[in-house]
């Protein structure tokens, strides 16, 4: 498991301090039609390999982070504060 998470604000911390909130996907526009929202809310992929995920550092800095994690090896490639960095890539 990705047991040590490199929080950009706090340094390396155990996964117990975090809450995982699922894939970091681009949110549809507020006025998007129902099928697009249904897709966003319910139809999630279960990728084998690299994966971007929201993690919340609940028992630390309490910031939302975007973690790039490999679902096979559980290696963490990158971790950034969700407030900075570019917009999330469009879902393909």
């Amino acid at each position: 498991m990705a047991s040590l998470v490199p929080c950009p604000n706090c340094g390396r911390r155990p996964k117990e301090e975090f809450t995982i909130k699922g894939a970091a996907l681009k949110r549809p526009a507020a006025g998007a039609d129902a099928s697009e929202w249904f897709d966003y809310v319910y139809l999630r992929d279960n990728p084998h390999g690299a994966y971007e995920e929201y993690w919340h550092h609940t028992s630390g800095c309490r910031r939302w982070l975007v973690l790039t994690r490999d679902t096979v090896t559980h290696e963490v490639a990158a971790c950034r504060d969700a407030a900075d960095g570019s917009r999330l890539e469009e879902r393909t």
Binding site: C10, R13, P14, E16, E17, T58, S59, G60, C61, R62
Partner: peptide, 10 residues
């Protein structure tokens, strides 16, 4: 300073 868990308590 740092915020962390001590056991199960933040």
């Amino acid at each position: 300073s740092s915020v962390t868990l001590i056991g199960h308590i933040a």
